[in-house]
Write a protein that binds this DNA or RNA. Sequence first.
DNA 1: AATAATAACAGGAATTATTACTATTATATT
DNA 2: AATATAATAGTAATAATTCCTGTTATTATT
Lengths: 125, 125
Amino acid sequence: MHRHSRQRKVILDVLKRTKTHPSADWVYREVKKEIPNISLGTVYRNLKLLQSIGEVTEISCEGNEGRFEGNSHLHYHITCQKCGQIKDVDDIILHDIEGKVARATGFKITNHCVGFAGICPACLE
Amino acid sequence: MHRHSRQRKVILDVLKRTKTHPSADWVYREVKKEIPNISLGTVYRNLKLLQSIGEVTEISCEGNEGRFEGNSHLHYHITCQKCGQIKDVDDIILHDIEGKVARATGFKITNHCVGFAGICPACLE
DNA sequence: AATAATAACAGGAATTATTACTATTATATT
DNA sequence: AATATAATAGTAATAATTCCTGTTATTATT
Ligand SMILES: [Mn+2]
Ligand SMILES: [Mn+2]
Ligand SMILES: [Zn+2]
Ligand SMILES: [Zn+2]
């Protein structure tokens, strides 16, 4: 069973309170302010565990591997190829696409992801 | 300007003739059968160059980073979480989604990707 | 409250994928 | 043929992630 550790709690808190989509290392440095001797392995271990219980999501589109967020509701992402920021795209959800692809491929589909790449308004100036 | 090298040609040939979505290392081992002393760095360098001229695409959804294909027409992918195979999903293309997201976000969008994960028919047995 | 079992930890080593470096070779141009 | 330099092989370096091991902290049980 899962025990509660201070490390796990702070890692999740850090993720819940940021609106960005940080890397494991950013989380590590952030948690370090509160728990100076936390180890990077602990961050990775907990990010994985928190994912397995649905508290944390890892983004997986458009070269954004290794970016995490404490937000498990389905949504997509867009990345600025100039400044690197990753923003949520909340406006659009493709509700029916998994069923469509299931019928077309014969796969049992468990999830899907959609990612966009481009230039953000600020970088367009 | 680009010169023609045997290495580059064979790397592209290998990618064009496979229907899988191989890793750089698989390409390396495959090319090695024809050019035994090719170096892995050459494979990476050429994969990147071939991408830049649109001859090669790197997949970027659902944890499939680092998989390549010699096929640049827009299509999506589905990965079997059990056996790891990556298949093309040719049936569906979201033509209008980039415009929709551009309007919603203010980004200038250059491309998008869609990935599915699930269990393939064979692994469902 | 004390004891016992073990999940979780810190710190460091190991692994893997990718990129960078450098002296040499091959290609295109004159 | 001579020249300029893109591209290469081979190796070293970097970065992200996982693994390992001895120690600590949490929970359940007494
Ligand atoms: Mn998000
Ligand atoms: Mn494909
Ligand atoms: Zn930007
Ligand atoms: Zn399968």
